[in-house]
């Protein structure tokens, strides 16, 4: 795969994570999450065979689909085309997102030199970026959907990093189980949230 495509994938990956951090629009967030998994697949091809990398893609898309179906069944999801003005919070989070991207770009060479020499800078930028977006997301919001997206983003970042370090089938299987369970828990939280709102 060409270097350009990988760079574009990494950029899109961070963009998708940034959208999830900044915008609070369920349909858009689900779309961004799906896009994020597609980009993870493209970036991970650097260290994994397409067959193995596809596992992450399929799991990611399943996770996205599960969340989407739950949101649809709750009846609270808005159309993707609904346009809303940016709130001041979103502007703030957007600034933070830019900062996080900058930090991950600056941090990756340092990390590569000091801790992960076998991982490429691009992969490190993507994974560190995802981890930081995930952490920030988890740290600043308690709404179930965004929390689960934050967790999934964080885990994706780490899986990306770990894929460049070690390969184990058991580990892949366990990561798959964790991602799917996390999605189930996310759906459980959303359903509970909706139920208590309607009660």
């Amino acid at each position: 795969m060409s270097e350009t495509l990988r760079i574009v994938s990494a950029a899109l990956l961070l963009l998708a994570a940034a959208i999830n951090l900044v915008r609070r629009q369920w349909a858009l967030n689900i779309l961004a999450l799906g896009l994020q998994y597609v980009c993870v697949f493209l970036v991970i091809l650097e260290v994994r065979s397409p067959l193995l990398a596809a596992i992450k893609l399929i799991v990611g898309l399943m996770v996205t689909l599960m969340l989407y179906m739950t949101l649809v069944s709750s009846g609270l999801i808005e159309s993707l085309l609904v346009r809303r003005r940016l709130s001041s919070g979103e502007v703030f989070r957007g600034t933070i997102a830019l900062l996080l991207v900058l930090i991950s770009i600056l941090l990756s060479p340092v990390l590569q030199q000091s801790a992960f020499p076998q991982s490429s800078q691009l992969l490190l930028t993507a994974s560190v970026g995802l981890i930081m977006f995930g952490l920030f997301q988890m740290g600043t919001i308690t709404e179930p959907l965004y929390l689960v997206i934050g967790l999934l983003t964080f885990l994706s970042g780490f899986e990306l990093l770990y894929a460049s370090l070690e390969f184990s089938r058991v580990l892949e299987a366990l990561f798959t189980a964790v991602n799917l369970s996390l999605a189930l828990i996310g759906c459980f939280f959303i359903v509970k949230d909706v139920e208590s709102r309607s009660a």
Partner: peptide, 12 residues
Amino acid sequence: EQAGSGVMRYLV
């Protein structure tokens, strides 16, 4: 009840 912030923080 909806999931409380405690359980979410635990998970995180």
